[in-house]
Design a protein around this nucleic acid. Structure first.
Length: 784
DNA sequence: CCAAAAGTTAAAACT
DNA sequence: TAACTTTTGG
């Protein structure tokens, strides 16, 4: 073991080593960006195990995302001589699920409860609001759903919500009705997973004591992102003041960017106080970026008042200066970054090492079209993910109905999809009947009279048939059967755009298949010998016979039920075009945790970054600043910052000034690619003239058509262009000439033919390949 | 019941 | 502008 210890601890810096080898006490690790946080977490677990301070079953390690959990498991797998599967390492929600599956009875849940994702939850709330006859203008389902989730995340059931006004009282009633509906249908939403398992531990003392004894070490990743409920949940496993229990909280207050969804940075300070933390360790040595980048990050974040305090440092030297670009328009900004990215790639940098970051999703459009036209492969993060696709959700709804006929959300989703003559009226009748009898929709189909009732009964019968026909089949066979028998496959076959959807349904089968293989269903569901040694042996007292949850999960869950849970808890990727080397486009939020050789941060303008919605309060601006800090620290070697004078937003041209954040960066670390403090509008004028020169007039400038709408004081056009001498499209072309086409982007003339009206050019475009274009028709403009 | 037309709205995202 | 939802009309 000693040899292995040494191996494990090799190459850790003093702070990392101190953190990894802390005794079993409460500890707070302030881990700066790029300071080897994940390494510290996983090495600590490995070290605890290797030195026999804890058994695999005695570790509880929590993360926020599936990705982080997976990475931790993978890394641990390489450090440990045994299988890590079965250890309590996972996301908050994943672990809650595990707990509730094991103790469903004590938690008051049906054995096969289903999990609602945000979309399901929204439609469930909509139904409640409708059923209560509330005005959807005043009780906007989205806001109601948000209210309910927020209450749950504060640990409040309806009775505990303080309502001082009529509207809030009504909201609480909706919350109540929603809970009742969930109970009836046997479903839980994400927040409910957390709250229910928290309450379970809070109210069931033997159970709580069992888990407390069991988990000698609790480790939390991204602690700054925990909400109140998550912190309370953690305290159930490891209360402040408990002796001999290690609580290892890792976080970075400077990277707290999720206050808007309930995260409480304050949990870090609370933790320090409540647990009387003696060991606060700062990891400030950065292994990712060069000095200029870190200087910029440090200087920027120093403008925040609310900090625990931390400064990143590196041994890597200053590196290149940070390049700053001022653009005349969002369009010009995109063109510029495209050129730079191309240059980087030409210099040998893989495209996947180039990231383009923006504050809000809408900004990706211009950049995408520029990259697309130039034929540069790119990948956009975010957007629809696999299990959220309509066709996949439809198939899953059928599958859920096999598991639980009373799942009204799923029932409504597919009762008339594909269409089977069940209209809004019939459904309303059915819902009335169900409401009157307090039963589920499926149970109430008999109560609807006439032809409509028969159709409904036919649907339920169809489900029953599918259910019995799929008994004993493999997961793959079940899904294939359902996709076929439900009529989904036939429906999409006749759709003109249906081919992709059919492929996705096929992909669902594949996903199920690989899920079964990975989870090893039918084989050894529990690989790990739990609690063989060390503290926290199972059911220590004898009278509190608590079954091993691990064993129980393996025992009770059918492959289908497990797969459905997996589908709710893990939405999957958004179609990764694997294999292609592509430039990475994403919001700053989704860049958290990632790193790239070169990073472009675009649209750094007042109103956009910091976003205007954040300007009203100081906390808002501080969070924006942290966001900027996160963005900056993503870069390893090269960092570009850009802003634009004009930008198309919500169909209108906006005139922006550069962000206040520029004033907070050290001038010495920056290199302005465009002249500093350019007169307002001059860049626009240049762009304007170039567009005229290309013969495109105002249409060559994005949003220029709206210029006349601007207030006089906003008029950015000090330059009055003369009409071009030659009509558009008559510019002399030669082979080899670089040209620009409004639709196809940049290209090179390969061949020229004919003359006058017949003059044609063969042009090779990056993305669209080689095209023949009639010069009289096509708007081709030579580039320089 | 479906498709087209009209209306609405606009930050960020994980589970 | 564009994506999405609701309303309207065949």
């Amino acid at each position: 073991m000693h040899l292995q210890d040494a191996q494990l601890l090799r190459n850790l810096n003093p702070e990392q080593l101190a953190a990894v080898t802390l005794p079993a006490v409460p500890a707070l690790i302030l881990a700066g960006a790029g300071s080897g946080k994940t390494r510290v977490l996983t090495t600590r677990i490995a070290w605890l195990l290797a030195t026999n301070q804890v058994s695999p079953g005695g570790v509880l390690a929590v993360t926020f995302t599936n990705k982080a959990a997976k990475e931790m498991l993978t890394r641990l797998g390489t450090m440990l001589p045994f299988a890590v599967r079965g250890m309590w390492i996972g996301t908050f929600h994943g672990l809650c699920n595990r707990l509730l599956r094991a103790h469903w009875k004590a938690a008051g849940l049906p054995q096969s409860f289903q999990i609602l994702d945000s979309g399901d939850q929204l439609s469930a709330v909509k139904r409640v609001v409708k059923a209560m006859n509330l005005d959807e203008e005043r009780f906007v389902p989205k806001q109601v759903a948000w209210f309910i989730a927020a209450q749950k995340e504060e640990g409040r059931r309806p009775a505990a919500v303080e309502a001082f006004d009529e509207h809030t009282r009504k909201l609480v009633q909706v919350y109540e009705a929603y809970e009742e509906q969930c109970r009836r249908e046997g479903v839980v939403d994400f927040a409910e997973l957390m709250l229910r398992s928290y309450e379970l531990l809070r109210d069931d003392e033997p159970l709580r004591e069992h888990y407390r004894r069991r988990f000698g070490h609790v480790l939390v990743d991204e602690f700054q992102d925990t909400n109140r409920l998550q912190y309370a949940w953690l305290k159930m496993f490891a209360p402040p003041g408990a002796q001999g229990q290690g609580v290892f909280a890792v976080g970075d207050d400077d990277q707290s960017i999720y206050a808007f969804r309930g995260a409480r940075v304050g949990n870090m300070a609370d933790f320090e106080r409540e647990y009387r933390v003696r060991s606060v360790i700062k990891l400030e040595q950065n292994y990712r970026s060069f000095g200029n980048i870190l200087d910029a990050a440090n200087a920027l974040i120093a403008h925040n008042a609310q900090r625990l305090g931390k400064n990143l440092r590196t041994d890597a030297g200053p590196g290149e200066p940070i390049r700053v670009q001022e653009a005349a328009s969002d369009y010009a900004e995109a063109q510029w970054l495209l050129d730079e990215a191309r240059e980087l790639h030409r210099g040998g940098m893989p495209r996947s090492e180039i990231a383009v970051l923006y504050r809000s999703n809408a900004q990706s459009r211009v950049i995408e079209s520029a990259l697309f036209n130039a034929g540069i492969p790119y990948r956009v993060y975010g957007g629809l993910r696999f299990f959220e696709r309509a066709e996949v959700k439809h198939a899953l709804a059928y599958l859920r109905l096999l598991e639980n006929p009373d799942d009204d959300t799923s029932f409504l989703r597919v009762v008339n999809f594909p269409a089977r003559g069940i209209g809004a009226r019939s459904i309303e009748q059915l819902q009335d009947a169900a409401r009157a009898s307090g039963r589920s929709l499926a149970q109430s189909v008999g109560a609807v009279p006439g032809k409509a009732g028969l159709n409904l009964q036919g649907f339920v019968h169809k489900l029953d048939t599918m259910r019995s026909a799929t008994q004993g089949l493999t997961l793959r066979e079940i899904i294939e059967h359902v996709v076929h028998e439900s009529g989904l496959l036939d429906f999409y076959r006749t759709e003109k755009e249906g081919q992709d959807r059919i492929e996705n349904l096929q992909e669902l089968v594949n996903a199920a298949e690989s899920f079964v293989t990975q989870e090893g269903f039918g084989k050894d569901a529990v690989a790990l010998p739990l609690d063989e040694h060390g503290p926290g042996t199972l059911a220590g007292g004898g009278e509190t016979a608590i079954p091993s949850p691990d064993a129980e999960t393996g025992e009770i869950v059918s492959p289908l039920a497990a797969f459905l849970t997996h589908a709710s808890l893990e939405a999957g990727d958004n179609q990764a075009q694997a294999g292609t080397d592509a430039v990475q486009l994403m919001t700053v939020h989704s860049a958290k945790g990632l790193e790239f050789d070169a990073v472009f941060i675009t649209g750094i303008e007042e109103g956009l970054f910091p976003h205007e919605q954040s300007l009203s309060d100081a906390d808002g601006v501080e969070e924006e600043r942290r966001l900027m800090y996160v963005a900056i620290t993503r870069a390893r070697k090269r960092l570009y910052l850009s802003f634009s004078q004009t930008r198309m937003l919500h169909g209108q041209t906006r005139y922006n000034v550069k962000s206040r954040f520029f004033d907070e960066l050290p001038e010495g670390a920056l290199k302005w690619l465009t002249p500093r403090q350019q007169g307002f509008g001059s860049g626009y004028a240049r762009e304007y003239r170039q567009a005229w020169d290309r013969g495109q007039g105002l249409s060559g400038i994005v949003g220029a058509g709206r210029v006349e709408r601007a207030e006089p004081w906003q008029q950015p056009v000090p330059f009055t262009p003369k009409a071009p001498a030659a009509p558009a499209g008559q510019a002399p072309l030669r082979t080899g000439q670089a040209v620009f086409h409004t639709k196809f982007g940049e290209g090179v003339v390969v061949t020229l033919e004919g003359s006058g009206e017949d003059a044609r050019a063969q042009v090779r475009f990056g993305r669209h390949g080689v095209k023949w274009l009639l010069l009289a028709m096509a708007k081709l403009t030579p580039i320089e």
